Simulated assay, not measured.
Amino acid sequence: MQRKTLIHAECPVARSLERVGEWWSILIMRDALHGLKRFDEFSRSLEIAPNMLTRRLNALVEAGLLEREPYSQRPLRYQYVPTAKGEDFRVVLMAFVEWGNRHYAPEGESVQIVERESGRPLQLMMADIADGRQVPLDRSTVQAGPVASEQMRQRLSIER
């Protein structure tokens, strides 16, 4: 039985999950954004079956998050590097780190988000697009956008 596709869903969360919602994909992106590039590096890091790794890498390339680049001609071998879209996924991973540390790390943080130069701890923030003013996450919400359908507008108005 074929699963339902979310590729044309109106919700941006659903559309995004269609591209990266499988947990191997998220872990591959984690490793790619940390500098891993080659099939064997991903395989060693994740201890993932080769056929599954191949499928997930191909899906991430197709979704535009990774790009395949040849690094050897004989034999022909490829490395996988994040595209601009893939680099934008970094904020999603940072949110996972922060959320996971807060709720699933009773023993303490094994991974921290820090400023690269100073090593000082950071937290994710929302910022006003117009003036850059920081807005606490608990003071932000979602609302229907300019092209939202009536169904989406109703759904979002009920959830408030």
Rank of each mutant, 00 (worst) to 15 (best):
E107P: 03
Q112L: 08
Q73Y: 11
L53G: 06
M52W: 09
I129H: 04
L53H: 02
A105Y: 03
V114S: 03
L46K: 03
A144Y: 05
E67Q: 15
T141Q: 06
P82Q: 06
Q112P: 01
V135T: 03
R68Q: 13
V91A: 08
A127Y: 00
T83L: 09
L46P: 07
P70W: 04
D131Q: 04
G145D: 07
E107T: 04
E69S: 02
R74M: 08
M126L: 01
P82H: 06
V61Y: 08
P75E: 06
R55T: 14
V111F: 14
A148W: 11
T141F: 02
Q112K: 15
D131C: 00
S149V: 05
S140F: 02
S110P: 02
P136A: 12
G86W: 11
L53M: 01
P121K: 09
P146D: 01
R153N: 08
L57A: 02
V61C: 15
D138Q: 12
L124R: 03
P106A: 00
V111P: 05
A59C: 04
G100N: 09
G119C: 10
R139F: 07
D128S: 08
N101D: 07
T83N: 10
G86Y: 09
D138N: 14
V147E: 15
M126Y: 12
R153F: 00
Q73W: 13
R68E: 11
M152S: 12
R120M: 04
V114K: 08
N51R: 14
G145F: 06
M126N: 03
R77S: 15
M152D: 09
P106G: 07
A84D: 14
P146Y: 03
L65M: 13
E107K: 04
I129L: 02
V114R: 09
L57N: 06
